[in-house]
Design a protein around this nucleic acid. Structure first.
Lengths: 347, 347
DNA sequence: CGGCGTTGTCGAATCGTTTCGGTGACATCT
DNA sequence: AGATGTCACCGAAACGATTCGACAACGCCG
């Protein structure tokens, strides 16, 4: 089959109408008589025409219907985190209103290949987290004059931002523990910076990941000198490792642990059980995120429920608004503190 | 700023060269003298030109650099499964060789919006799982004459397919249990069809999900009459529910359980513990996938290790090959049986 | 019956690149 | 010195659709 695909012009010719009319039949921008529409559709059918070429359409329209989502991590790593997953879901929802799809982009293109961020036909971009690495991507995107939204990260002047009240929220959990009488509290944080290896965080460490820094600050607002152990990622296994570190020294053992994510909290709980400690009787544990941790039952974490999907949806709507020429504003979501059965008065 | 973005023609004019030359400077398709190149680059810089418009380029080239990935599930659900996540990772890798990005597509577009599958500028499509629902998507894509690859699913004649030796692999695990002396075996399967609710699978049930059917067949090759409980999804919690069902009746209790995924197996193990059974002494449990189940330690599942990332990578390469005009062949990957500490001789 | 608002269709002008054949100019070989 | 190649660069023609103003034809009203 050497024959190339039929174009809308071919269809128009076969149907005996002008290309403009045929185009309108497919786009529905203008009224067309039923008779004509049918004729065009028939012609399309007989020619095997399956609709306008999206490439040509997007050139003419100046829109591709594609929103790029840029992650700093390895793609797989990004989806290991249920919060990000939920966020993606919301985002997909949000951009669906303008009929757009999500193009997955890695921050640093694998060696030797084109940076797709510069060559992809994006209408807009959403950056997830913005710690250093993403700055570069941000530069590329803004240079292209594309609307951009940053989720959970400081992007600098004039960039639309979707974020949480991380510090205030974490402070709530801390206050809760304080009110329960806890004084010796341990903190388990998310990664301190890209490439961070798990370990205790020195007091003079500079924390480049916004979320980690803010939540830690919130915890320290209440427990000024609480030691903090930084995990390498948000996972149960990392939490387990962190928990072991916290509970290693029986004398220095905390009576409560503030974890910066539910997954970490779940790991900490497991570490506690391992150490023969009962939760919440011997040690209270709080999480952050409010997700359903697979397999954690019967525990119900005391945690901060964040509107993860809403964050994504908001980003999607913001992007849609910007594309529609409206101005959108940054949004700061609020977490809801939820008491579960993993925190109790100090024994 | 009413001023529109500069085009490559503007840049060419400023640099005093023809548009074709300017184009070549950016694409690198032909040799250009250093002096000219520099002149063009300078002109671009002073005009704020950030490279060729991808939309126009893709029209002219006939390539957009975008590969669509179509899921049948809710986007979020897709990424809850570590296997899919790994697969995506490999896929991203595989298509990176042609500098393509991955466009996330849901099978059924949310109501009231354009089906992006038909309007997105795709070079190729990868369908994940192909059970009924996806058939429609498949029709759309093939009608558009786009190269398509199906991962884990029967797509019918002439469609390139990437799959596993599901049946043979599962049979290995079953044989292993048989060799250990087990006779009363329970099976926990993945979803039987889209929208399946957890429950025992009647003998006359038609199983439309390929993976589920094949693995079940493999298990029944060895244990012809083993009862099968179908989970609604691949998760620990579903496995837990299934396990409870299996262990509910002490008299009918199986001495071994074949789970169709590691996540399910993890849940079954938890259910066993809950029922006061010890694994593997009282009951053996095998999984499928060979992923690292977060928080399952110290158990190491006896399972079938599937090359999830390789599947994705293979799909990516297949797509790349087809786009290059070469012919690619279907691939069937082989799982590796790995004995862990969750299976033991029958007590 | 003439003016007028509707409705449906058409022409022509883009949208911004890339590509391909061609053309000088200049170096190399015999 | 003439023939032959190479190297850079240019012009013009696609790529396939959308859009917008113009324009007939038509029914309606006073």
């Amino acid at each position: 089959m050497n024959t190339r695909r039929p174009t809308i012009t071919d269809v128009a010719r076969t149907a005996g109408v002008s290309p403009s009319t045929a185009s309108v039949v497919f786009s529905g921008k203008t009224a067309v008589s039923d008779a004509t529409r049918q004729r065009v559709l028939d012609a399309a059918g007989s020619l095997g025409y399956t609709g306008p070429d999206p490439r040509a359409a997007s050139l003419r329209r100046g829109r591709s219907g594609i929103v790029g989502v840029v992650f700093e991590e390895h793609l797989g790593a990004a989806f290991l985190d249920p919060v990000k997953t939920l966020m993606m879901d919301g985002l997909a929802d949000g951009v669906a209103s303008i009929g757009a799809g999500l193009l997955l982009l890695r921050d640093q293109a694998p060696l030797g290949t084109e940076p797709t961020l510069t060559t992809a036909p994006l209408d807009a971009a959403v950056l997830v987290g913005c710690s250093g690495l993403l700055r570069e991507s941000l530069a590329v995107v803004t240079a292209r004059g594309i609307p951009v939204v940053v989720i959970e990260g400081d992007a600098g002047e004039g960039i639309l931002r979707i974020e949480l009240d991380n510090r205030e929220a974490q402070r709530q959990a801390a206050s809760h523990l304080r009110a329960l009488g806890h004084e010796k509290v341990g903190i388990v944080t998310l990664a301190v910076r890209a490439g961070w290896q798990r370990g205790w965080i020195p007091d003079d460490e500079t924390i480049t990941v916004d979320v980690t820094r803010e939540r830690l600050a919130g915890a320290r607002d209440v427990f000024r000198d609480a030691p903090a152990f930084g995990a390498a990622a948000s996972s149960i296994d990392e939490g387990l490792a962190a928990g072991r570190a916290l509970f290693a020294d029986a004398a220095a053992r905390p009576t409560a642990v503030l974890a910066q994510s539910d997954l970490l909290a779940a790991g900490v709980i497991r570490a506690a059980e391992e150490a023969g400690l009962s939760v919440p009787d011997d040690v209270s544990v709080t999480g952050f995120d409010g997700i359903v941790v697979d397999g954690l039952a019967p525990y119900e974490l005391t945690t901060l429920v964040q509107p993860a999907a809403d964050k994504g949806r908001a980003a999607g709507h913001a992007v849609a608004a910007m594309l529609a020429g409206e101005t959108a504003a940054s949004i700061r979501f609020t977490c809801v503190f939820r008491v579960g059965n993993t925190s109790a008065p100090r024994a």
